[in-house]
Amino acid sequence: MKFTLALAQISTRLGDVEANLEKHLILAREAAQSGAELIVFPELSLTGYVLQDIAATVAHRPVAEDPVFRPLLQASNDLDMVVGFVEEDRRYRYYIAAAYLSAGRVVHVHRKVYLPTYGIFDERRYFAAGDCFRAFETRFGRVGMLICEDFWHVSSPYALWLDGADVFLMTSASPGRGVTDEILGSAQWVQDVNRAYSGLFTSFFAHANRVGFEDGLNFFGGSTIFDPDGRMIARAPYNEEALTLCEIDLAQLRRTRVRLPLLRDERPEVLLKALQRIDALK
């Protein structure tokens, strides 16, 4: 089976959900008209990234009655969508979240588990942390979603892999830093990590990063898709908004895994034993 995935590498207006929503709807329409069946927006694509005290005021609940999700769910009748937003729960905790929407339904919401709170990051100050990794069924097979810092912890994609994910959708709002080499140091890192994961997990890894500035922070784009052989099959430009379409040939999963049966040979029970032993030492 083949399908077309679109990476929506956008810049956002900080705290202006209405303007960002409009951009989502325009790009979703454009992507659908170009034949895309799934569009992935970056982390916090509806709100902007360095929210600080804005966070609680731009939060939404991913339900049909919500004024922001209503039009998004409607658009998801034309193509599946991954959108980034601030989720408010019933008890007024706020999460950095990504929602997978399809055919007018919310299929899955992932709440960012790892909230970087060091250096330029201050997420834990404003947000509650998610507490699970779960793969989910889509019309393109089983999918796993991770948000930015989530995939700096190798256990996150590993858990999703064992939970059956063959297509990984990674979203981020990654600020650029490091200017000694050909491309930004942070861009190189993210690319290397996605390439390594796709090869090690013999799976598809699509990464949607944003562009633009927030004060002095620059977001570099360079969104990518790697196939199960670790080959880059799509890359959006650096620093510019772009809608990048790429055909995903799911049959590559079989070809790669017959050659390289890492999934077949994986021994989670050995890992589990090791974790239990390590945990018992605490």
Binding site: V179, T180, E182, L184, G212, F213, G216
Partner: peptide, 19 residues
């Protein structure tokens, strides 16, 4: 302390224009 000057040039001109 060497930098990639063309990379920095692009970044800083975008910064000025955007901000």
């Amino acid at each position: 302390l060497s930098i990639n000057p063309s990379l920095v040039r692009g970044l800083l001109t975008r910064f000025i224009r955007t901000e």
